[in-house]
Amino acid sequence: MPNELRTLHPGTTTLSDTAFVQEETRLTLVPFVPEVSLHMADDAIALWEATESARDEIGLPPPFWAFAWAGGVAVARYVLDHPGLVEGRTVLDLAAGSGLVGIAAVLAGARSVRAAEIDAYAVAAIGINAEANGVRVDAAVEDLLDGDGGPAEVVLAGDVFYERAMAARFLPFLERAQARGARVIVGDPGRAYLPRERFTALAAYEVPVVADLEDTALKTTTVWQLTPAFSQVG
Score class of each variant (00 low, 15 high):
Val141Thr: 11
Ile103Pro: 00
Arg176Trp: 08
Gly190Gln: 10
Ala201Ile: 01
Ala105Asn: 06
Thr51Lys: 15
Arg77Gln: 11
Ile128Pro: 02
Ala217Val: 13
Val135Glu: 01
Leu8Asp: 00
Asp143Thr: 01
Ala132Arg: 02
Phe64Pro: 00
Ala108Lys: 09
Arg191Val: 04
Pro63Cys: 11
Phe20Ala: 04
Ala165Lys: 12
Thr90Trp: 10
Arg114Ile: 00
Thr12Pro: 13
Leu85Glu: 15
Ser53Gln: 15
Val75Trp: 09
His82Phe: 15
Ala152Glu: 05
Val137Trp: 03
Val91Trp: 05
Phe20Ser: 04
Asp143Met: 02
Arg114Gln: 03
Ala108Val: 02
Tyr78Asp: 13
Ala167Val: 05
Thr51Phe: 13
Arg183Ala: 10
Gln225Arg: 15
Leu171Ser: 12
Ala204Gln: 15
Pro10Thr: 02
Gly181Phe: 13
Arg180His: 10
Gly158Thr: 08
Trp69Lys: 06
Glu214Ile: 01
Ala116Cys: 08
Arg77Val: 08
Val210Arg: 14
Arg191Gln: 12
Thr28Gly: 00
Ala201Pro: 08
Asp188Ser: 07
Ala70Thr: 06
Ala168Tyr: 03
Arg180Tyr: 10
Gln225Pro: 12
Val184Pro: 14
Phe67Gly: 04
Ala201Cys: 00
Gln225His: 14
Val207Ser: 00
Val223Ser: 07
Thr12Tyr: 00
Tyr121Glu: 06
Leu194Arg: 05
Ala177Val: 07
Leu100Gly: 00
Asp138Gly: 03
Asp143Asn: 13
Glu57Phe: 12
Pro61Gly: 08
Val123Pro: 12
Ser37Leu: 06
Ala139Gly: 10
Val186Gln: 05
Tyr121Val: 08
Arg26Ile: 01
Met40Phe: 14
Leu80Lys: 11
Arg111Ser: 15
Thr12Asn: 13
Gly59Glu: 04
His9Val: 04
Glu214Gln: 10
Thr90Pro: 07
Ala124His: 12
Glu175Tyr: 14
Thr216Leu: 09
Asp17Asn: 14
Thr221Asn: 12
Leu29Lys: 06
Thr13Leu: 08
Arg55Phe: 15
Ala50Asn: 13
Ala168Gly: 05
Phe20Val: 07
Ala139Arg: 02
Phe170Cys: 15
Val233Gly: 04
Arg180Gln: 05
Pro151Ser: 07
Arg183Asp: 10
Ala152His: 06
Ala125Thr: 01
Asp212Cys: 00
Phe64Gln: 11
Pro172Leu: 05
Val210Asp: 14
His9Gly: 01
Ala125Ser: 09
Glu206Pro: 00
Val123Asn: 06
Val137Glu: 02
Ala217Pro: 02
His39Asp: 05
